[in-house]
Design a protein around this nucleic acid. Structure first.
Lengths: 336, 336
DNA sequence: TCGGGGACTGCAAAGGGTTGCAGCGACACC
DNA sequence: GGTGTCGCTGCAACCCTTTGCAGTCCCCGA
């Protein structure tokens, strides 16, 4: 086999080198790092300083082999480049590192089949996986949780720890906002098939519209992209609705673009509401009215749940994070 | 020690279990996976099927321990949530996985000190690190490359494989575009201290302005953020310039926002050019004229370089990716 | 018939740590 | 002085896989 030599020709120092150089047994060196209180302060500082001078760092793979804990976490998202995810990834990474964990990030390209492959591939290499907005079936999730501890984000699964955003409540607030502006014919621009969030939104929106005595046309399923939002423009207009709630900001923004191209003015002729409050939403014109979802908090919470339920016995709690309607410039009174 | 038990109480299958169940030696099982041509097809298929039924997957940590290759890559960026990075991360991850590598992603929060810590922490756990837009000193890079193979992106370092974008040429094109529109008083909204890209842009912009006989005021250093772009608005106006080139799109967009608030119309009174062509740039109004940088290609190229120079002897080549000026609506003729 | 070689397979060491157990000296207490 | 305890350290097995080496078996050519 090929030894991993550094560029200057020296081999990275192992625990044995440190032991030899400081005149103690390897187990003492090991304890110096993993259970410092068990070793004599003098010995400890001697070991520490020779370790320092040798540039020694414990090999995590070797440690993982015996302890069974890799100190790695996997994070699986549908699309890294979808602006919804980066804040979540960033928060999760930061939280993980603070607890001395490293984060694998993987992208399924919106493909549910890929989700399974990724979990399988990561399973032996991580202490747990964060599944963000998974589209796979419940059965499959059941199967996978047997291979590796799982925390799901943006989905509720029986008996599995989960972090969800209260989009139902957010969607309800959005509908009430629109009804309050006098709109009576509404449309919902649906998201992708298999999305728990999408089901929540549809359910809540339907109920809220009904309660308010408003008409609601549900469109979809659609890809959760700007392009799909733009492509759905004619379908939206055909419903005769004066206000639309979109599955996410990206679709809302695509819709806004297409409306602009067709000369339909927002919010004068049509009100548009998004969901997520991605940073883009306050930069476009008109500024988008949207339901803000606490993505960074979700990332942190998911890491916390994984690490905590990893320590003690498994918890199956679901933490629900609140959402908030942010009214900006894309909604206005019913023109009729 | 605590065995890692799965949720159903079973312990994950090891190579030994497979060997026992299929009546061969562990080495044969090992070879079945890592050198299939060395084992009899019958044996191989028998091993494969029992492995399948036992749900066996090779333990990468154990494999890493003996081969010295982890099949992991580290990717260090300044800010995951900065829209410049996600396309790069996505492309790198995809390219890595295609070659059976997994990607650690880490965020320095724009802090150069953190860069070193991260490389150190990742060093023993990866086969190489991709350093994106590093701000650390050359000396430090020299030191770190001794611990782990490095590829730098958006920076040229002597003797180190690098992927850079030809921003110099892009900035030159931007200046020529502005001069062609009749602008003679220009401003450069500079980026962060320590950024190689920033130096390149300044150098090239200065030269291009001089060559064209135009005035150039250089502002900065600034954080590469929208907020910093907005904050610099007054300073930009104070220069008396009729056209500005910003270090990146984010700053340009922040500037656009601030200009809008002050009632300065773009491009009628002031032309603005960004760099990067993040997806946001074509969604804001006016659509931003910008220099597009091939970030996804950079991510792929960086992974390729790391993996290739990892195979054979170390290459120190620098690959330079072309940039392109995208003219949209934020630039127009000199009003004077 | 025998030697040589090829195709498989088994054996065992190695890789870098962790950890239960036992040893040992120092000290306190009776 | 004997005994028990405590603090520290060493010993050695173990984690899971890879891989150089050696052995076995079979086939082929001489």
């Amino acid at each position: 086999m090929t030894a991993t030599v550094c560029i200057n020709g020296s081999v990275p120092a192992t625990i044995r080198d440190v032991a030899r150089a400081s005149g103690v047994h390897v187990s003492t060196v090991s304890r110096t790092f993993s259970a410092p209180h068990l070793v004599n302060p003098d010995t400890r500082s001697r070991v520490l300083s020779t370790a320092e001078s040798l540039g020694y760092r414990p090999n995590r793979a070797a440690r993982a082999l015996i302890t069974g804990r890799t100190h790695n976490i996997g994070l699986i998202v549908a699309d890294i480049a979808n602006p919804f995810f980066p804040p979540l990834i960033k928060a999760a990474e930061s939280q993980a590192r603070q607890r001395d964990y490293h984060l694998f990030v993987a992208d399924t390209n919106e493909d549910p089949v890929m989700e399974e492959q990724l979990v399988q591939a990561l399973a032996k290499q991580v202490d747990g996986v964060l599944l963000c907005s998974p589209r796979m079936s419940n059965d499959l999730i059941e199967k996978l949780r047997r291979e590796v501890p799982l925390v799901v984000v943006n989905r509720a699964v029986d008996g599995l720890p989960a972090v969800v955003m209260d989009v139902a409540n957010g969607a309800k607030a959005a509908i009430e906002h629109l009804v309050g502006l006098g709109h009576t014919r509404l449309a919902l621009l649906g998201g992708p098939r298999g999305s728990w969030t999408n089901r929540e939104i549809r359910r809540s929106t339907t109920a809220a519209a009904k309660a308010a005595g408003a008409d609601l046309t549900v469109l979809g399923p659609h890809h959760p992209t700007e392009a799909a939002g733009a492509a759905a423009c004619d379908a939206v207009l055909a419903t005769g609705a004066t206000a639309v709630l979109a599955y996410n900001d990206l679709m809302a923004i695509g819709l806004l673009e297409a409306l602009h191209d067709r000369g339909v003015s927002v919010p004068a002729e049509l009100s548009v509401v998004g969901i997520d409050d991605i940073s883009l939403s306050r930069l476009i014109r008109p500024k988008l009215t949207t339901v803000s979802t606490p993505t960074a908090a979700a990332g942190r919470a998911a890491v916390d749940m994984l690490l905590q339920h990893d320590d003690e016995r498994r918890t199956t709690a679901t933490v629900t994070l609140q959402t908030e309607l942010i009214v900006r410039d894309s909604t206005g009174p019913n023109p009729h």
